[in-house]
Nucleic acid binder design. Structure first.
Lengths: 216, 216
DNA sequence: TTTTTGAAAGTGGTCTGGCCACTCATATCC
DNA sequence: GGATATGAGTGGCCAGACCACTTTCAAAAA
């Protein structure tokens, strides 16, 4: 049964504790010494579990203060895995494709939703486009949110980081037209065009990144 | 700069070591005591790094034998993240939609791949369809595999479990026609029809399950 | 000689206790 | 009242010690 691998039990226990005690992101969890005692394990073993969770971005530790539940946004996991795994071109491509897959699906979902295509959001988005500080990521995230699938949004968020933040940076002048085209197609519920325009922008962006050598 | 978080340095060091020494999946890496000494850190600190990597599935440890590099392609990204991405009772519907999303994307990917549509696989699939023991899941999994996106396959596998194994059971007589239609459309690279037929089958299946009360 | 046995070395798994650096709230001093 | 010192609590790290397990290989038994 549970021979060896005690720290895995702890990982599970901590996760359960977080659920049952209704600990929310930002909240503090008991100290290492306290947890070690209540779970009847040595502190070093407990730390192995905590460090693992930290590397995953599930918790955040601040020396002198304590351990806090992270709002799972900034996953170090991403960096770690990418440096280990992404030597393999296939993996890199898979991540890229899977992310795109979620984005396209989001656009299609929005187009199929009558209500969504009539929202005021589009108007305000067009305005924000012209703002100098408007990030590419803001645009795509907005689409993901509007799709209404929160799970897909979460997965997308991870994949985005995992593929080296493809949407970093602000929207350039050239891109405003592209985005307006996408928005127009969505408003007209023209799923096909919207997707085509989006993919075109995505590919253009990728080439741009390679040209600028931002493909770290 | 690197104040605190020594174990993160170790993670990086281990990665570099693996690269420079050309250690391949399955190979053994130095023992904990040995690594601790060469890296000038305590063994417990080093273990924190190793346990983190192990949780991610990047290394594998066997008591009494040693620590081994595992195949990077088997990283536990999806498994590990699922425990908290899917934690809060995400609406059943989101899971369902997201799974479908991956399936549809797989079909589209296959249709766009000239080589895939000409494979002998389809012929053998048609034969296996008639087998009484052919499971619905076998059919869909085959599609997911053939899409070539391993990450998507992994995500799909999890989502499938979380949505109550929607493809349990063997293929009924009525369904053979549906599946043949899907296969034909794929062979003709008719993405639209293939997806439409697939969605139709999926919806039919869902209703069938509800009728039989298998919606646990 | 061949087979069996068992002791030793090496490994990961775990615990204890300790020290350090840091944060924060409190009490103290000016 | 405001600045300062102090102490409790926290995570970061380490050394040393067992334990359980695997492999190895030489000694003992066949």
């Amino acid at each position: 049964m549970n021979q060896s691998k005690r720290y895995l039990d702890i990982v599970r226990d901590i996760r359960d504790m977080i659920r049952h005690e209704n600990i929310k992101p930002g909240d503090r969890i008991p100290s290492e010494r306290e947890l070690a005692e209540t779970m009847q394990v040595g502190r070093s073993t407990l730390r192995e579990a905590l460090r693992s969770l930290e590397l995953l971005g599930l918790i955040e530790t601040r020396r002198g203060e304590g351990t806090f539940l992270s709002d799972h946004r900034n996953h170090k996991l991403v960096e770690v895995l990418s440096t280990f795994v992404l030597q393999d071109n296939q993996s890199h491509e898979d991540v890229w494709e899977t992310r795109l897959l979620h984005e396209v699906a989001a656009i299609q979902a929005i187009c199929q939703n009558e209500a969504a295509s009539q929202m005021r959001v589009w108007e305000s988005l067009r305005l924000r486009l012209k703002d100098e500080s408007f990030m590419r990521e803001d645009f795509v995230r907005e689409l993901m949110v509007l799709s209404g699938n929160r799970l897909s949004l979460k997965i997308w968020f991870l994949l985005k980081q995992y593929s080296g933040d493809p949407y970093s940076g602000t929207v350039s002048f050239d891109e405003i037209d592209r985005m307006n085209n996408i928005l127009t197609a969505i408003e007209q519920q023209d799923s096909e065009t919207a997707v085509r325009e989006f993919k075109a922008w995505s590919e253009w962006l990728q080439k741009e990144r390679i040209r600028n050598g931002n493909d770290s």
